[in-house]
Amino acid sequence: MTVRPAHQIVPVSQRAAGILRELARIVVGKDEALKLALACLIARGHLLVEDIPGVGKSTLAQALATTLGLKYARVQFTSDLLPADVLGVSIYDERAAAFRFHPGPIFHSVLLADEINRAPPKTQSALLEAMEERQVSIDGQTRKLPEPFFVIATQNPVEQIGAYPLPESQLDRFLMALELGYPDPAAERELLAGGDRRARIADLPSLADAATLADLQREAAALHVAPALLDYVQALLAASRGHAGATPTADTGARRGLSPRAGLMLVSAARAWALVGGRPMVLPEDVQAVFPAVAGHRLAGGARAGALAAQSLLRSVPLP
């Protein structure tokens, strides 16, 4: 593991703090969610936001993209959305006498996949495969997706008629699942008084670019993880396996515990969180901060139920 002296880390945390500050001006009262979203991006994961419409999901995605200086696209998923609508399509160009590829919205660095559970499984699966592979194959040609590539998918947990809930295997591809929730009264007041936030996104300064973000991601991946911390992560994984097997919840049936991949994701998310917090090492607190978001949707159906299950799991596992 690379040794990284503290002085190289500090500017990163300052940069992260600056980004968060700007974001907080647009997405009011959601500091924790913003920080998690940023950490998710730095951990090269994808984010699933589970909430009713109108709580600021798209605003968050757009503001994040703008602040980081990334290209942003939004796709409203509907029941007639085809894979090509997301990935892109080759159209015959008569002047060039050749097929020309028209890249779909997936070729943006930040993709907001709104109401992903409304799309048919085939389309969902195309997106999720691209998320995992970070490349798409169209017409026998493999095309790299931009770097960084960050999907924020949303789904509405309330309206389930005519929806295709994501299967567990697909849920597993999201690093984090969040619930934004209603703003608290003070934040809502500020929101009401301040007018439309969407309009102000354009005014946001871009504090980073793809290259800096790649730096951040590299730095996070190199952050020190002590054996003691891995002990703790393993204890959490073991407890989740015992825990989930012991109390299968009614709505989801018997669930398995956290997979090794979930463990890996937990560690990288904790690294990103520590980096955003400006620490040169990962602490149990970092693991605990990201654990509900990382493990919730793997432990139980629904972001809220998952977060609660994750919280109680955290409480049951002492620090080794």
Partner: peptide, 11 residues
């Protein structure tokens, strides 16, 4: 304490 327990090897 956190740095001693969870920190990277000394630079």
């Amino acid at each position: 304490y956190a740095a001693l327990r969870y920190g990277p090897p000394p630079a």
